[in-house]
Design a protein around this nucleic acid. Structure first.
Lengths: 123, 123
DNA sequence: TCTTGACATAGAGTTAACTCTATATGATAC
DNA sequence: GTATCATATAGAGTTAACTCTATGTCAAGA
């Protein structure tokens, strides 16, 4: 199955401008048909979903770009790609821990507010 | 204890330009001495630390600004401030769960790479 | 006193990641 | 066949959050 940019935009929830921007940045390389229109494949779809995951976990476009280049270079870059993902995974792990810590602090602040409001209404 | 902007910058690790920017945006309101220099207090310090926590958990400046306004308005805004923090806490909770989910997916991708690399080196 | 350094303001510049506009062309519906 | 619509490119504009520059003031050390 192939998709026009309009269909692909809806499918990925990404906006045609964003899709063209990603392509310009080297993240995507869809085929073109006889009249130069972009043809996105299922493979492009899976790849975009992965890009979104990387983005959601805070990876900047520049790094995704690097990863995309490795991917385009073929199987010989598998180890390097794995390294890259593993490093990102570890950063993510730290980030999650920090967020959890922050949430705990936030919880105690909320608790403080709760007792403070209680105290004031009992005055 | 009071601090000049230079001291406060080192203490908070925030850059004097950033401190002035935060003040311009209404996040901070340090005292001024007789010659118009900023004097940051311990209270400012605690408040900046809290601002950093909110920022680290993804709250945009605009929202922190709103919180700061409520804070400046006094005790009558305690309930609203608590509401705001509670809402942020819940958003944070969801964010953490999503990150954990993404990390799991990332882990399986890394695992896939590992077996793939293994397979290739055994060929 | 003179110079150096921290501080003051106002406003310009930067960066990331889009997002939109202008203009042109190929495809589709009537 | 013509009006409309999706798509094409190139490049400008936007937003958030800084970050820096220009210019001026003031206080303290040599």
């Amino acid at each position: 199955m192939e998709y026009t940019i309009g269909e692909f935009s809806k499918l990925t929830d990404l906006g045609i401008h964003t899709l063209r921007y990603y392509e310009h940045e080297g993240l995507l390389t869809p085929e073109r048909n006889s009249s130069n229109r972009r043809c996105y494949s299922e493979k492009d779809l899976a790849w975009v979903m992965f890009i979104k995951r990387l983005k959601d976990t805070g990876m900047p476009i520049k790094q995704i770009q690097h990863y995309a280049k490795l991917r385009a270079a073929g199987d010989s870059t598998l180890p390097e790609r794995m390294e890259l993902l593993a490093a990102h995974r570890n950063a993510l792990c730290i980030q999650i821990r920090q967020l959890q810590e922050n949430m705990e602090k936030l919880d105690s602040k909320i608790e403080f507010y709760r007792t403070e409001i209680e105290r004031m209404s009992n005055k």
